[in-house]
Amino acid sequence: MKSFEFVNPASLRSAISTLASAGEKAKLLAGGIDLLGEMKDYIQQPDIVVNLKTVPGLNRLTADRRGLRIGPLVTLTEIAEHPVIRANYTALAEAAESVGTPQIRNVGTIGGNLCQRPRCWYYRDEAVVCLKKGGSVCYAVEGENQFNAVLGGGPSWIVHPSDCAPALIALNASVEITGPQRRRVVPLEKFFTLPTQNVLQETILESGEIVTQIIVPAPAAGTRSHYMKVRHKESFDWALSGAAVMLQLRNRRVAACRVVLSGVAPIPWRSPEAEAVLRGKAVTPQVAMQAGQAAMAKARPLGKNAYKVPLTRNVVKLAVLKTAGV
C-alpha cells in the first residue's frame, strides 16, 4: 500500500473540508474493509485518508415510531443483531447478516456497505486499466463475465456488490448527504447511478460529500420483508443473485410492494415489472413465478452469465413466497 497521511477530524465540518480541499487525493475511511483492500491492490492510491470514526455521533442507531435512523458508522453486526430491525425490518437484518464474515461485519459499516466499489475482477486487477479506472474498454464484455450484469449493463457491466442497499430500497429508505455547501436527503433508489451517467462512480456523491444518516420509515401495518441471496460459495460471498422483497398485505392481497434485485445489475435493481404483477393479487406460487419472469423479461446476458436469468427468476419467486408466508 502506498504511504499516506492519516487525518483524524474532530468534527463533520472538518472532515468535509479536508475531503473537499484534497479532492481526488483524499479517501474517506469508515470500517476500512473495502478501502484498505483497494489500497493494498493499488486500485486506490490516496495521499490522504480521512478517518470518519473520530467524528462524533455518526455511530448512533435509533429505532422509534417514526422508523430507523442509522448513522453511517453503525456496523453490520449491530444491524443484523438489532431486535427491532430483525422483527420489523427483516430484509435489512437478513441482508446485513449475509455480508462477508463475522470478522467483516464486526468492522464493516452500513455507510461503507452502500459506498463500496465493485468486485468485478477486471476492476480489482492492479494490472488492468478498465473503463471504470479511466480506460477505454470494459473487459467483461468479451471476457470472463460469469459474475457480471444481465440487466442495466453498458458501457460497464459491473454488478453492484451491496446486499443492504436492495433491502433498504425495498423498505423505502433515504440517505442524508452532507457536503461543503448543503445537506440533502435523497431516496436511496436515486443514490445509485448507472454507468451511462458516470462510468467512474456508482453514486451521486460529489466531492466532499459524506453519507451522514440512513433514514428508514416505519413500515405500514401488514408489512413484511425478506432478503434472499444465492452465493457461489455458501460460507461467504457476494450475491450471484439476490432479491429483497417488501409486501404490504391487506386481506391477503398485496396492497403495496417492492422488489429489488442484487447481483444482476450495476445498481440495486428495482423491478417495476415484478411489482406490477404482484400488486392487488393474492400471493400464490404461480403469481410469484410470474413476478420472477417479469423481473427478468428484459435481461440481456453476456457470453457466460445466462444462468443468472433462470436463477434470478427463481430467487424472486422464492423470496416473494417466503415474504408472504406461503
Binding site: F4, E5, F6, V7, N8, P9, A10, S11, R13, S14
Partner: peptide, 15 residues
C-alpha cells in the same frame, strides 16, 4: 486516540 477537539475545525494529521 482522537484528542478532545480544541475546536470544530481541528484535525489531527499523522504522517
Amino acid at each position: 486516540p482522537a484528542p478532545e477537539p480544541a475546536s470544530a475545525s481541528a484535525v489531527q494529521r499523522l504522517r
